[in-house]
Design a protein around this nucleic acid. Structure first.
Lengths: 183, 183, 183, 183
DNA sequence: TATGAATGAGCCTTCATTCAT
DNA sequence: AATGAATGAAGGCTCATTCAT
């Protein structure tokens, strides 16, 4: 008896995301996802070729959402001094809301690099934009090598705080702010 | 046909460490380790009760080595201003030499917490010592919440740079130095 | 290539029972059962958690069938003098049909006692009922210590004859009859 | 450093016999035997080709001892009425002393039949002798088919009582006596 | 199109056996 | 002759994937 399922992809997405709070890619399994999404395993395969593709799709979409938020900030506050701070806070909030997206982007050297690293690059580019604006505002100029490391460090730290000290939001935000101001 | 093997534990160590450059705990498998170490699977089980124990032993020992180095710096340069810098550089070098130890300490939320988190705590405590000295020298006083986040951030960044930008040592070191000085 | 299989549990049952004619629990293995039942190993695990559970389920069900037969005799012939004889003959026939159930109940000290010993107790209780009736009819009264040993001895002997002298049914039955009459 | 071991075979024997109290053939393992016998695994293989041969040798020797006792009774009490009773009691005592020999002779359909069944036959022949004497004394004549079944039943019952009700020696002996007298 | 039972390669682990010392 | 580390086949079990319904 086929079951008509509305918004299947959305359901898969949500289920996977939820499971990622307590699992990583390897400890996830298709049965689990199917259960959480309240559908059959076979259905998952009607939408995705295999586990990796499913995971990647969910992961990408989750980051897309985050990117939309980051882009809003980037476009709304182009002239603001503290645009970088705002960006970090936004990222922080996103990761708090969807734990999985944070932890996996750090761990995931599992895949052929490709898909994950595209996300990483995109994420970095957002931060680069903000950093550039900051540099202009502050009339400073950072070397490229420093820029990229700074960005990575910020992202890493943000993800870490949001994941491992999630219950202390204020202190986390405060800390990141102070870091940025030190620059 | 049994074969007498010299330095078995060392071989297992090296093989596992080497494999950890491209694998994580889950994608490691005992056959792979045995192959890399040029011995039979059963032999691994003469030395370790199971996969987890083997991994943990290798991992701990690798960090022990690193801790020895860090302790040297801590004891030799107690009065130096830049002791934190030296510590970070030392950690950086260690991770460059043994990739596995860096990546897994970040990823590994696999285990009963215990063993891995003991290592994490130890690592942090080294950095805390150095930070305390720095604070005394500089006559500053950081809040505890800031201290711990600073330490985590430094470690995270160091591991990241050593792992992902390993070919650009100079820039990496330079960057970390500048971060520390900003404090 | 998945294959739809009819009456899977029955097939597993039959395969296991057949293998038990020449194997015991320990020398059985899941691959063997799967082969005999013409299915994949994984399929077995869709129906039973593990080897022990599979074995126990098959074993219990087989004894359940036997118990039904024994209960029939017990209820139909409550007043008959030779109810004990009838019971033994019935047990004998059951064991001849399904060899496995006989041999394993004697050997099986493998398990947490529980499941197997429940079966043993049930089997004994059937015989005890019959023995009680016999005692009433004959106006004799056996000591409890004698009763239980008599029952065990009867069961043991019946299983043995059905298993090891299966081709000489008449003599076997004759012998058991004579034993019972001697009491 | 080779260790000079006295009475190696005896040690192996004793160790194996002791282990057989709580293990069966399959759950025994060579390391365990070596440990119990306080020697190296390799040493076991200097005396026996493989696990089966070792087990069989130990098992046979253990039964040899029992057979010696039974033979004594057979020769000493040739004219006694209750020779069969004496034989059974002797067997009972032997099994109580060396649990392993009892349980394994019942379970062991593991082997190519040969060696175990030779022991079984020998055991039966002792009982047959005693039964014959009994028949002569009592001026009765049993059919061969009855004889063999009677013997098997007696042996089985004796082993069972000695193994499973070992703490109630008196009742066990009493029961077997009564059985024999009923004939 | 959705279902979920069936599949089997692959993983961890054990243990009888071998053989260099 | 005794040792025990090394071996690797074999067993239990998992889980991504397939496909008949």
């Amino acid at each position: 008896m086929p079951k008509i399922i509305q918004n299947i992809e959305k359901k898969i997405n949500q289920a996977t995301l939820k499971l990622l709070e307590d699992h990583n890619y390897q400890s996830l399994n298709m049965k689990l996802i199917a259960q959480e999404a309240e559908m059959a395993v076979g259905t998952l395969y009607n939408y995705y070729q295999n586990k990796e593709e499913l995971f990647l799709a969910v992961f990408k979409q989750s980051w897309q959402k985050t990117f939309v938020k980051l882009d809003q900030i980037l476009s709304e506050q182009k002239k603001e001094k503290n645009i970088l701070v705002e960006l970090v806070i936004s990222l922080y909030n996103e990761i708090c809301q969807r734990k999985g997206i944070g932890s996996e982007i750090i761990k995931a050297d599992i895949f052929n690099e490709n898909d994950i690293s595209v996300i990483k690059k995109t994420l970095r580019s957002k931060f680069k934009s903000a950093l550039k604006i900051l540099e202009q505002n502050q009339k400073i100029e950072l070397k490229k090598a420093v820029e990229i490391r700074l960005i990575d460090s910020l992202i890493l730290t943000t993800v870490h705080l949001a994941t491992d000290y999630s219950e202390q939001k204020e202190e986390n935000i405060e800390f990141i702010k102070s870091i940025i101001q030190k620059i």
